[in-house]
Design a protein around this nucleic acid. Sequence first.
RNA 1: GCGGAUGUGGUGAAAUUGGUAGACACGCUAGACUUAGGAUCUAGUGCCGUGAGGUGUGCGGGUUCGAGUCCCUCCAUCCGCACCA
Length: 930
Amino acid sequence: MEYNPREIEAKWQSFWKRTEMFKVTIDPEKPKFYVLDMFPYPSGAGLHVGHPLGYIASDIYARYKKLLGYNVLHPMGYDSFGLPAEQYAVQTGQHPAITTQENIERYREQLDKLGFNYDWSREIRTSSPKYYRWTQWIFMQLFNSWYNPITNRAEPIDELILHFSQEGFDRSTNSVLHGGVETIPASFTSAEWLSFDKKRQSEILMNFRLAYLGESYVNWCSALGTVLANDEVVNGTSERGGHPVERKLLKQWNLRITAYGQRLLEGLDSLDWSESIKETQRYWIGRSEGASIYFPLENGQGSIEVFTTRPDTLFGVSFVTLAPEHELVAQLTTPENKATVEAYVQLSKNRSERERLADVNTVSGVFTGSYAWHPFSQEKIPIWIGDYVLVSYGTGAVMAVPAHDERDFKFATFFSLPIKPVIQPNKEHDFNHNAWELKEGKVINSLFLDGLEVQEAIGKILNEMEDKAYGVKKLNFRLRDAVFGRQRYWGEPIPVFFEDGVPYLIREDQLPLELPVVESYLPTEDGAPPLGRAKNWVYENGSDYEQSTMPGWAGSSWYFLRYLDPNNLTNLASKEAVDYWGNVDLYMGGAEHATGHLLYARFWCKFLFDIGIVPFEEPFKKMINQGMILGRSNFVYRILGSSTFVSGELKDAHNTNPIHVDISLVNNDRLNLEGFKAWRPEFRDAEFILGDSGEYLCGVEIEKMSKSKHNVQTPDELIERYGADTLRMYEMFLGPVEQSKPWDIKGITGVYGFLKKYWKLFHQGGNFEVTEIAPKREHLKTLHKTIKKIREDLDRFSFNTGVSSFMICVNELSESQCNHREILEPLTVLLSPYAPHITEEIWDQLGHVSGSLYNTPFPEYNAEYLIESSFDYPISFNGRMRFKITLPLDLGAKDVEAAVLAHGEYVKWTEGKNPKKIIVVPGKIVNVVL
RNA sequence: GCGGAUGUGGUGAAAUUGGUAGACACGCUAGACUUAGGAUCUAGUGCCGUGAGGUGUGCGGGUUCGAGUCCCUCCAUCCGCACCA
């Protein structure tokens, strides 16, 4: 009986489906384990071999945990709102839901063939109204909440409204707002609050709601007709499509993620994630402690607020710089400077982000003509404008201290402004060339700060400043509030309608607010989003709905919760389900979502925690980031101006042009000549100059997998040829999951051979046969050594070394022709997480007719079988291994040493010298020091 | 520029606590078998050397009886961020 993966795999896949083998329910008797894969966007291209890498690893782990007795939740779904389906809709008029449905079916087919243990009864799709009803519901909760800085959590906005109507609002004691986009409302009394009209009240509340409508600079991509998140912009162009992106002031829905800055930062410490992702998030959140300091304007009309982390250098200020977009620019520009300033502001506005990034070293700026007073020294400080100051960070204004800040230094040098050192460097330093940026040295030229060390000076000036009300200590975050709307069709409608320009939530019983039918997916003539085309799409009272939709990351920010209870009609998930399954124990996915999805999901989880929906603050306890599988491209070399192709090793002797050749026409870098000629009409008459071997050797390069490079390998063709078990094991065998690696088909035969060898253990005479006779000790040793290794490897997610161990085990058993049931049966269970189909078939043949080995306990190893009585001591001289002696393990160090001295080879290596020392590490090594 | 990661045979890699470097697999070489297959089996395969032996984990240094592993300096590659006051 031959190993026939095609037959076996189809048989067991249908068996699992029929018996609902992977369906899980709450079982308080068992401990739970939640394994989650980042769900895919179902693209039209389908899966290539790189995609399942993480799914295979998590599947193996999930199966392992299941066999260990855990109740394992391992669901899958689709992040099915997204731009490609919509772009296709724009081009063809086909509804994105249809495209999406087709792509999902193709994905499902491919996933099913890999033998995953997903509980498909829990499948979710973010674009399904049954699902996005709850995405909309969460938005409504965000709209109805504000962040209370005293209790440090989200609270109902109604409580804040009540507070306003009883106490009013005092701006000076406000420390509510964290972000940079909002403006803090002016103070008002309770009576004033009650007298404000709805519009005014709504506008004030927008400064507090966690989901709010606010005017902010956004990344506007006119080619895509939408706003992009920071992480969707790459070098000033859109991540998808590479279209130019400009900064534009727009009224947008935003989420106040900045309110959670501190908690998002602190939460990282408790997570078992890669250091690299945690660092990226820390940097992205960008917490910095400092002070807001007010510089009164010379004209007496208020003051400029600057943010600084170096208040100790306050006496070194020689000018103040405003961002070109700063609100005071117009007011501060004197008539004689008006033309220059306006020209400069206009220029910086039109400069794309990309341009501004490109020339970091170019200094530009203009003087406004106005001055401010230094709060302590009462000096007159000129006010400049410079585009090195960003309006979105801090207060959009800096106090420039050229002696101690490199950018200020460049600016001052360029415009010949004074450079005044106030910290005495503790090393040699030349203030003519550089700023002294280190927080080291003694303060000088600074009145009451003189003589203090930097840290002491910071403490003192902060206290002094707050006493005199010249400024306040301030925590600042680089993190920006998240834009939560895009001018697109294929997304969740925002459950809001407008009445007299005031936004209101729709009633909860009106959820889901479904996407309306439109006849075209383009923006309307007057620039409104596609939803503006919907006919009669109004709320029950006749009011217009919000026309923008939610961004791509909305649905993925909470999907892990819906899997817990996917069909619940009255709640996002039942309390019972949330309490039992809890958060994700193992999250498998790409590292590219470091600052997008992974930050937003943490934010939503903390919010849902605050409002009592979930009992945990972090969604994903442990995360593993699978590496990318790169393509291995093959090249042929055409001699210029001819149709002659020269073999790779000879290409340098000719003037050639490399051409990507489809990897299916290449075997072990040797080109299939006939196949190549038939590949494309233009190559029909190709001629070849072959190498010495008589074959055509192709060139090789490692690149991303893509259609245009003809290096895409789909799982389907490999499963067809070798089976899913082989593919699963081979992907693991390639190397550590976290590492990126090139895909190379050629090693797959090794793994295929292994499975055949394993199969052969049971079919040595051609037919299935195992013996009930008790196995030899060496067999038991092989088995138990393997059990131990496999468990250890799985526990540390070292899937590649696990495959090697199986190979070693099967090699050893084959060599001694072992076919003892007592050995092969546990081995089969041990192997089943990696190769679920073949092991299920063997298990069946072993006589377990009714059941599946999916319900069998994982083998335990017995240390007794691993005990050795002797050991091959490596004998090294000065750390270099020379020979070995087999000695009993219970031999004492003295006796080991004696045995070494007595050994025939000993004299040869000592060269007659007396050893200085002999180190004996029992059971490990002997080292003779000469 | 800042942050993170990675450098081991022709290739993918292993070496978990400092203790025999290169397990396992591909490829390659030689051979066997044959129902001529994308099959199976045997032997060999880091590099230099006929050999004894020498040498070897990106470079250079250090700690140690002993370093791929620990410390310092540098180099290369990949990823992320980028005027953050």
